[in-house]
Design a binder for these strands. Structure first.
Lengths: 211, 211
DNA sequence: TAAAAATATGAGTAATCCTCACATTTGCAA
DNA sequence: TTGCAAATGTGAGGATTACTCATATTTTTA
């Protein structure tokens, strides 16, 4: 969306160089801490590299000594959480051996994840997408609501006795999940994409047709 | 992710000025056509305003005469399709009066949408997000697959007779939809967010626990 | 202790969005 | 027709910011 000099070829490079001395390890920590704070305050899109360097008390050059580009910083922060939550997921599901166990473990997992989404600034930032697109996505959301509304009308007609708010939530969610399935489908191969869309259709219909 | 001069406050402005003369209407059409072609070729992120102007045969100034910023062009293109697909959705669902009708209409709708996703460059561009984030999302996807894998293992354990590929697709989709539900939940109000997560949990469990 | 490797610096480069002062064309009333 | 206001057209330059690189300093190693 904006001007830029350097390279940008859709790759996420690893740290340009691993800090091997005590001194640089501490400085890298300061950089990450500064970035984390700035992301929490304003989001990664508004975060300026110069600002990160200044707050960390290092020069802009040092920043690029260890992080090849802006995304690498965000990603480095994200990776810590990713590893942690993978361990958590693995632990929660490891011992499941029957349906009831799955129900309990999965329910708990959803709650944990939801709290993580609500509370963790860096992950929240990544999950929210760039600030630049926020306005676009807001409009998309409005469109999606409008589309889901057509579905809501049908559901209310078919199930007059059900709670209207619940039907609205269901319709909205089903619709949004459809868009997710499509998005996924076009970003994976065609074959897997077809399977995903088919699976979505089945799931959605089950939800829509079960009273 | 990059440098920029002007204003950017998360708003999408409407055309700065509506073209009222025949001449300018034609020029605006040319601008939109040029933008559409460029988006199809390289995506909106790589599309440069100067390039749009050049290909449309107008000056950069004229572009900004009618479009306040880059996003406005993309959005103007998207709006045409949006109106069209809303009409299509409305028509497909309008006459549904029973469960079988809903099943048919919804199935057809999913297919239509899927084809639209696959074929329409501008919408595909919007749905794919910015190029800048593509690498990040690829890594997110990998993480998501890894997380879903834990779920797959459980499902295979609980349903040894089922088709493994189908279980993988289900687990992946369920997981991805969970992330969608979370993303939604944090971008709407807390109350609606809670309802969405609860609805997701119910849907996911129904899918996971039904053989 | 001297050479090599790692680390630090920040002014400068490059890239691109968008503005603005001024030129040109069009619509329209006298 | 003529004159004027409104609409439209222009493109050089302002502004911002990611990232580089030649050079200086510190740490490790031989």
């Amino acid at each position: 969306m904006e001007g830029r000099p350097g390279s940008q070829d859709g790759q996420i490079a690893s740290p340009r160089r691993a800090p091997s001395q005590q001194r640089s390890r501490e400085r890298v920590e300061r950089m990450l801490a500064a970035a984390s704070a700035l992301i929490a305050e304003q989001g990664s899109d508004a975060m300026r590299m110069g600002e990160v360097a200044e707050r960390a008390g290092v020069s802009i050059g040092s920043l690029y000594q260890f992080f090849p580009d802006k995304r690498a910083i965000v990603w480095a922060l994200a990776e810590r959480h990713t590893a942690e939550s993978q361990a958590c997921i693995s632990a929660a599901l490891a011992d499941v051996s029957d349906a009831e166990g799955l129900r309990r473990a999965f329910s708990e997992l959803v709650e944990i994840y939801y709290r993580l989404f609500l509370a963790e600034p860096v992950m929240r930032d990544i999950w929210s997408g760039t600030q630049a697109d926020k306005a676009l996505r807001e409009l998309e959301l409005a469109d999606s609501r409008a589309n889901a509304e057509f579905l809501t009308v049908v559901l209310k007609r078919l199930r007059p006795a059900a709670d209207p708010a619940a039907l609205e939530t269901t319709a909205f969610l089903v619709w949004q999940m459809g868009e997710t399935a499509m998005r996924l489908a076009i970003s994976v191969g065609r074959e897997e994409g077809d399977r995903l869309v088919a699976a979505y259709k089945r799931m959605a219909l089950r939800e829509l047709l079960t009273e």
